[in-house]
């Protein structure tokens, strides 16, 4: 104890340097965290526009008098290579309907799988079926 008393300066310096290093490491890790958390934003965006397409097709069919819940968009739009390193991602589109007279609450669900993880989005729109004359 008595001999360490002479080395107060070095010990103080160690404390300062170690704190600096630790805080730098923490800053770097905190910077990397949101990148790890949100890896699939582009596929999500593609899925939103795919759901929009399906809703538009259902609307156009509904204006002619029938509600068709099958996939009505272009089949090639179901596959995308956006940011997926040449591995095509396939989307699965399903539509469900809650009728309320002429008005139908149509929910379109788009599902896709990346690295064994399943993701989905759901979009809803109220669509009026125009009765046939």
């Amino acid at each position: 104890m008595d001999r360490l008393n002479n080395e107060r300066g070095f010990m103080l310096l160690n404390v300062i340097f170690l704190t600096l290093i630790t805080s730098f490491a923490a800053m770097i890790l905190m910077n990397a965290l949101p990148r790890v958390k949100n890896p699939q934003s582009v596929l999500r965006l593609t899925a939103i526009h795919l759901a929009n397409e399906q809703l538009a097709m259902i609307e156009s069919k509904a204006a002619e008098g029938e509600l068709n819940l099958n996939y009505l968009g272009k089949p090639e739009d179901l596959t995308t290579e956006n940011f997926s390193e040449n591995i095509p991602i396939t989307f699965n589109v399903t539509s469900t309907d809650k009728p309320n007279g002429n008005l139908h609450d149509v929910t379109v669900k788009v599902e896709w799988t990346v690295d064994g993880r399943e993701n989905f989005i759901e979009l809803e729109r109220t669509i009026r079926v125009v009765p046939k004359e």
Binding site: E53, A56, M57, A63, D77, E81, N82, F83
Partner: peptide, 11 residues
């Protein structure tokens, strides 16, 4: 590259 297709219904 990012390629997105969509459709709009024009009432």
């Amino acid at each position: 590259k990012i390629k997105i297709s969509t459709a709009v219904y024009m009432p």
